Amino acid sequence: MKQINLFVILFFSVLTSSTFAQKNKKIDIIAYYTGDANLIDQYEVNKLNQIIFSFCHLKDGKLSVDSSKDSVTIKKLVSLKAKNPQLKVVLSLGGWGGCEPCSSAFSTAEGRLTFAKSVKEVSDYFKVDGLDLDWEYPAIEGLPGHLYQAVDKPNFTELVKILRSTLGKKYELSFAAGGFQKYLDESIDWKAITPLVNRINIMSYDLVNGYSQVTGHHTPLYGTNPNEESTDRAVTYLLKQGVPAEKLVIGGAFYTRTWINVENINNGLYQAGKHVEGVNFKDYAKTYTEANGWKYFWDKKAQAPYWYNAKTKTFATSDDIKSIKAKTEYAKSKKLGGIMFWELTLDSPKDGMVNAIYEVKNK
C-alpha cells in the first residue's frame, strides 16, 4: 500500500511539474533582419530569442552568402550571442523574388543533397544555429515568371528530410509559410514536414498584397467574414492538420500596405484602389497624423487598425502597437511557439513594436 501511495505521489508530482512548465513556457520573439553589422546595435537584442538573417540565395545550387558585407553582418549577429545566451541566429534562404532557381535546383535528389551539404558547411563556418527556408512558393505562383510546378510539394518534403539528416538534431530548421489558404492547401505536406522542423513561421501578413486592386486588412488577427484570410484562420487550419501549437509562429507586419484613388466609402476599407509603396512603423507617428489629413480606425472584429485620408483618397493597413499586442496575447493563449515579424529595421529602436511584444510576453 505504501508503494502504491508513493507511486501516486510521484505521478502527480511529475504531472504537476510538466503542467507548470507548459503553462509558464514563454513564447519566442523572432526577428527577420535585413540590416548591416552596425545597425543592429540600435536595437534591443536582449528582447529577442532568434534573429533570422535575410537573405542568402542559391548560387550553383548551393547556399550562398551574397557579399563580404553580409558575411560581416552574420558574424556580428553571432557575436551577440555572447551577451544573450537565449539568442539563436539563423540564415534564411530566398525571400519574395529570391528563390527563382529553387524549383529547378530542388527537383532532383542530387540537387537537394548538394544544397544540404552546403548549408552544413556555411552553418559550421559562421557558427549559426540553423536555416529558415523562405521559398515563395512551392507548387503555386509566387513572383510572376518564377518557375513553379506541382512536383515542388513532394520535393519540398524531400528537401526538408535531407536537410534534417545532414544537419542533425542540434540545428534549427524552419520555414516561412504563406498565411493564405491556397498555400496552406497546395504547397506543403504538413503531416510529413511537421516532425522534421522546429517551427513554422506563418507569414500572416500580405494577406491582401500589392497585386490586389481592392483594399483590405493585410495582416488581421481575425477575418471579418468567413472567406477572409486571417492569422486565426491559418492557425486553426494548421492545428486541424495536426501541427503542434508549439511549432506554430504567427507573423506581424512592421509596415503598411497602401492604396491610392480609394473612394470615401466605409472609410476606404474593402474599396477599389491602386497599390503604392507603404510606410515603415518607425515613420507612422510623423506620417499618419490628423494634420496630414489621416484618420485612424480600429476594426474590433479583425483586431486590426487602418488609416484613411479623405483629402488624398489614400488607404493604409498594417499592424500597430495595439494589434501586435493582441497577436501576442493570442499566441500566449493558444500556447503557440512565438511571434515573428518582418522586419527589425522597420521598428523604432526603443519603445516600438518589439518592446510591445516583449511587455505582453512577460505579463
Rank of each mutant, 00 (worst) to 15 (best):
K88M: 07
S18Y: 01
T219N: 15
E136L: 08
T114P: 03
K59P: 05
Y284D: 05
G251E: 01
Y255R: 06
A176C: 06
N261I: 03
I74D: 12
A304R: 00
V119S: 10
Q241W: 06
K313D: 12
S13R: 08
K76G: 07
Y358R: 01
K69A: 11
K335F: 00
I74G: 08
N5A: 13
A291S: 13
M340Q: 13
Y255G: 08
V360P: 01
Q271C: 14
L269Q: 13
D232W: 01
K350H: 12
T215V: 08
E263R: 15
Y125S: 14
K295H: 07
V72A: 14
N84H: 13
L113H: 15
K83F: 01
K240A: 14
L346W: 14
S230F: 01
L133A: 07
L344S: 12
I4Q: 07
L10A: 15
L248R: 02
S118N: 09
T317P: 11
K327C: 01
L80E: 15
A150K: 11
S212T: 11
Q42K: 14
V208E: 02
L15G: 09
G35N: 05
K170I: 07
V14P: 07
G98D: 12
A139V: 10
T166F: 03
K335T: 01
D351L: 05
I40K: 04
W259S: 06
K334G: 03
I30K: 10
L238P: 00
M340I: 05
A331F: 06
A291N: 03
T114C: 09
L196W: 09
Q149T: 11
Y306L: 02
M340A: 13
L15I: 04
V89N: 06
F126I: 02
V128N: 00
P85T: 13
L48H: 12
K247Q: 08
K59D: 09
S54L: 06
L133I: 12
K300H: 10
Q181G: 00
A176M: 03
G273N: 13
S104P: 02
D41Q: 13
T157V: 15
